Computed example of a mutant assay.
Amino acid sequence: MSRQWILASQEGFEASLQYQENVRIRSPAELESHEVLVKIYAASLNYRDISIADPKGVNGPILPPIIPGCDCAGIVMAVGSSVQEFQPGDRVITHPAPKLVEASGDNASASLADTHSMLGQGADGTLRSIGVFSEKALVNAPMSLDWLPAATLSCTWSTAWNSLFGVESRKARPGMWVLVQGTGGVSIATLQLAAAAGATVVATTSTGEKEARLRALGAIHTVNYRSNPDSWGQKARSLTPDGRGFDLIIDIGGNQTLSQSLAAVRVDGVVVIVGAVGENAAPVPLFAAFMHSCMVRGILCGSRAQLKELVRYIDEKGIQPVVDDFEFELADARDAYRRLNDKKHFSKVIIRVDHPRKRQ
């Protein structure tokens, strides 16, 4: 029997989320040939989870009831007859777009057109204690990570990996200047990965306390965007050699931050658009990139192949993903949504599901 959350409607997470206990799950004998039964030990949330629960979200409609979430870590309990990559006892994490992988292979990158079939929206997701997933919805977890940090990798960290290493000629490396925005999950993951690659990272934030935490994680400089609300892009740019601007900027705010990102990017630099968590603002036309002689790249997350690369890199570099200061139990997932929605978190909002305090 499993415990789980469902979205029973699409009226916002407060009204739509429902908690269920003693839910029957299929036995190993009932698995389809490509399916894997997973005991879930930890999960985490993304802004997409809030958007999916909201009828105004850009992700589009759902067919309730559906189990939300696309990030988790757990152990394989049983596998279907044709599963080749996993066996019982394997530690695994989820990849959010299994239908895309089944259709186009491990290197396929998701677009907005694919979101209707992704975990937590078009297929049952991860906010449950036991789940059945397609083989292509899983990859092996890093050997070096405990359950909670491992559960943050699926969407957020694969997005950060794709941002930094997704274009061969623009891979993060020593000598490259990278700008990250704020202290949300993608920004912190990008900071940790870019610092591990030897890049010089500058981070924006709103408080002195957060500035100290960002510097401790590897940021060489920080810029307070509240103190410089209309000029933090230029302020950040002034920190780069000869004020030339940044080689790579990870934009998480969308229209609210894009104008500042364009002000900070160097000629032939890249602005990677990975989200729209900022407040409503006037749209920034794509033509604005022409005025700054830069490239703009939009991504949703990483491919399954990139997620595997990320896992190897984390084990190789000994990176420990930073997680939020608060930890929620599965039954308290609505409170976890609230913390994310209110932007009170640092890095990733995490949910302990069914596992001991120390790694099994």
Rank of each mutant, 00 (worst) to 15 (best):
T115N: 08
P96A: 11
L153N: 05
G218N: 09
S9A: 14
S261V: 02
L100Y: 07
G302H: 01
G69A: 07
S293V: 10
D49G: 07
S82A: 14
C301S: 14
T207L: 08
F86A: 01
E309G: 04
D242Y: 11
H345C: 12
S27P: 01
D335C: 11
E11Y: 01
I351R: 03
A196G: 02
K56S: 14
Q18L: 11
A141Y: 05
M291G: 15
M295L: 13
F133R: 01
A282L: 14
A160G: 13
Y47M: 08
T200E: 11
P96S: 09
V139F: 05
P96E: 09
H34F: 13
D106P: 03
E168W: 11
A29T: 12
T183S: 15
L310M: 10
R128F: 04
A108R: 03
G74V: 02
M291C: 12
D315G: 05
L164N: 04
T156L: 03
P174Q: 10
G185D: 04
R357D: 15
I220K: 15
D251C: 08
V38G: 05
D230Q: 14
P321M: 07
L138D: 05
V101W: 03
S238H: 11
W177K: 04
V267G: 01
G253L: 15
A78Q: 05
G278Q: 07
A53K: 06
V271Q: 03
R26F: 01
F287A: 14
G105Y: 04
R91G: 05
E327Q: 14
I314W: 01
G74K: 02
D146L: 03
A141K: 02
S158K: 07
L148P: 00
G122I: 02
G89R: 10
A236I: 06
V349K: 03
L119D: 00
L248Y: 05
L239I: 09
I299S: 08
P68S: 09
A110R: 00
P142F: 05
L153M: 08
A236D: 03
G125E: 01
G208W: 03
A110E: 07
L7I: 02
K56M: 13
V83C: 09
K235T: 15
F13L: 09
L45W: 07
